Amino acid sequence: MTPALLITAQSIGLVTTEAFRALADRAIGFGAKVPLNEKEVSASWLADALGVPRTAIESVTVVDAHSGTANRARLAVKSDTHLPDSLFLKLPPRNYLQHVLMNVFRLGTKEVLAYGAFGDDPPVRTPRCYLAVEDTLRRRNVLLLEDLSATAEFRTVVDAVTVAEAEAVVDALAGLHARFWNTDRFDGDLWELAQRSPAEIRLGDLIRRKFIGTITGHTAGIIPDDQKRDCRIFFERSADIDAFWASQPRTLIHGDTHLGNLFFEEGRPGFLDWQVAMAWPGIRDIAYFVTASLEADEARRIERELVRRYVTRLGDHGVDTDGDHMWTLYRAAITEPWLAFVCTAEAGERMQSFEISRVGVERAVAAVEAHDSFTVLRSLIDAPSSIPAG
């Protein structure tokens, strides 16, 4: 068997393993450390999980719940502890296939690790985390978070930010990235955020080929033919792309900085849903945010200044970077939100509503066209030592 076929077989084995794990997990509930759904969250379980006497938690009531890439619920809690009266709960998704997907790509594991990495002093505003636990055998995860529904403003991808809000997000991301810039924790307690197995990489290539090898979904008509052709680089040369980005300084990034994963409190940004947190060059978060969260004309008007601001803020935190180099990386990194939005649109409404996915694709297409981002990316992986000035 050739190496490529072996890795493909390993990818199929990975999916099969996690499919059986999720199936068995749902069928055999006895002995689980983490609830499978919000109905299993009792006062006694919560007390045990928090390490407090069972008498300290009087009651836990589910106020509302819904499930997508994770199962989310709002809880009313009566207790004699430090817990507030209302909490936000995240558990494995109810849908079986989404449960398998979460296991395959370790989405719950990454979010638990991210909250654990922040500790009691997060470098960015996140919901306060009261509990972050994983059952490693079942690969179930539970997060018990601050309920922001009464204090925060939430938006979706179809919305946009003001210039002041964009600057505030860039400042916040610079603080996050500076905290973990080239940290040796990626070889220690955060190693799972820095590693992908060959099977995971190959599986990603197969998924990309399925979604963007031939683009036929509801946004196909707004994607230029040259972008449909150039995007094949994502599965034809994924190893080269990964090798280039791995050669750059890495930090802890959020990985999915669109407006649906942000909230605002009196203009101050906060970040939700850390399921794709990873060790990667920080400029990816900036490119993703600007591309997804600003109207195209406004993004083109202010994006260079936002990248300069990012470089300056990193410097304020003691991280020295080259502004021209960072700008070139930004232009190449715009291909990442393009990939995410086009794949989401190709997956159909089971992943995202057509209204939302279309806006994301429109903004990403405009950004790639303005910066010739696929050409920049190709030049970087062909000759990383001679980066174009841009």
Rank of each mutant, 00 (worst) to 15 (best):
P93K: 04
N95H: 07
Y96D: 07
Y96C: 13
Q98P: 08
L101A: 14
N103K: 14
F105R: 04
G108Y: 02
T109W: 12
K110I: 02
K110A: 14
K110C: 10
E111L: 02
L113E: 02
A114N: 00
Y115T: 05
Y115C: 03
Y115N: 02
G116E: 05
G116N: 13
G116R: 14
A117N: 12
G119Q: 06
G119H: 03
D120T: 15
D120E: 13
P122S: 07
P123H: 01
P127V: 02
R128F: 09
C129M: 08
L131K: 06
L131C: 10
A132P: 12
A132K: 01
E134L: 08
D135M: 13
T136A: 14
R140N: 15
R140I: 12
R140W: 03
L143D: 01
L143V: 05
L143N: 01
L144P: 06
L145D: 03
D147L: 00
L148V: 07
L148R: 02
A150Y: 10
E153K: 05
F154D: 10
F154E: 06
R155L: 12
R155Q: 15
T156H: 10
T156G: 10
T156W: 02
V157A: 05
D159W: 01
A160R: 14
V161K: 00
V161C: 04
E165S: 01
E165D: 08
A168F: 02
V169E: 04
V169W: 02
V170I: 15
D171K: 13
A172C: 03
A172I: 02
L173Y: 10
A174P: 11
G175C: 04
G175A: 11
G175P: 05
L176G: 09
L176I: 12
H177Y: 09
T183E: 11
R185F: 00
R185S: 10
R185W: 09
D187M: 12
G188T: 04
G188E: 11
D189T: 13
W191V: 14
W191N: 13
W191P: 00
L193G: 08
A194M: 10
Q195T: 15
R196D: 09
S197C: 04
S197K: 07
S197M: 04
P198K: 11
A199S: 11
I201C: 04
R202A: 04
R202E: 15
L203M: 01
L203F: 07
G204N: 13
G204C: 03
G204Y: 06
R209D: 05
F211K: 12
F211V: 07
I212A: 05
I212S: 10
G213S: 06
G213D: 05
T214L: 10
T214N: 12
I215C: 09
I215K: 01
G217Q: 02
G217V: 03
H218C: 05
H218N: 02
T219F: 00
T219N: 01
T219G: 06
G221M: 15
G221K: 11
G221S: 12
I222C: 11
P224C: 13
P224Q: 08
